[in-house]
Amino acid sequence: MTDPIPLSGRQPRAVRSVLAVLEEIVAAGPGVTAKEISAALKLPQATTYRLLNLLVGEEYLVRLPDLKGFALGRRAARLAVPVVTTPPTAARAVVEHLRGLVRWGVHLASFGSGQVVLVDPDPDHPPSDAALLARYPQVSALGRLLLAEQADWRALVRELRVFTEHTVSDPAALAGMLGRVSAEGVARQCGELRADRGCLAVPVRAPDGRLVAGLALSGPAHRVAEPNPELVELLREHAERLSPLLG
């Protein structure tokens, strides 16, 4: 009936129009209305409304509280390559301090773009491929911190890919695990991305409580599986010190 016509590869004009609508919303800024978009792009109004509703349905766009204006939704962050910004020197010094205390790899990742972006990877213990971490947040401890914070973690997970025999790929098991991550404030991953490596991560929160970054230790998988209370405490201490520097 009034369902939007599904887009197929045979409708290049519709695809082009969708991209033009997205560009127009970025250019015009939050609050631009459907009528304004239709006028700016010279698209028929009914077409514009349909495309906008489609993009809202897919959550690339959101309607602002007046229901007239549009803005980019969180999902649109997935359209952009995350920009790696160097953290402030003071923050890097905290991370460096931790590296001096442990024999594990110490990595700092930012979650500002809604993705896992390694902003200070350990040069002596190179972490897994950054693109892999960004792409499959459910298999890394850092990614799990980010997912545990979401109202709907599935929105950020593209594919439940299996990397090793330990990879958790069952949605229910993952949901339970993320529940424990948010309850305990620590995430871990043992041999799920590479069979011999594992990771422990704690959240770095801004003073107002927002999750801004994650601080991770990486080491041998069997060592990560141990409770490691003193290591977690050490991580938490440093995350605490990073809070005012990154928030």
Binding site: V62, A71, G73, R210, V212
Partner: peptide, 13 residues
């Protein structure tokens, strides 16, 4: 269920 700050790209960290 209004759009809240964290739903909008660039509004929250």
């Amino acid at each position: 269920d209004e759009t809240v700050a964290e739903d909008v790209l660039g509004q929250a960290a």
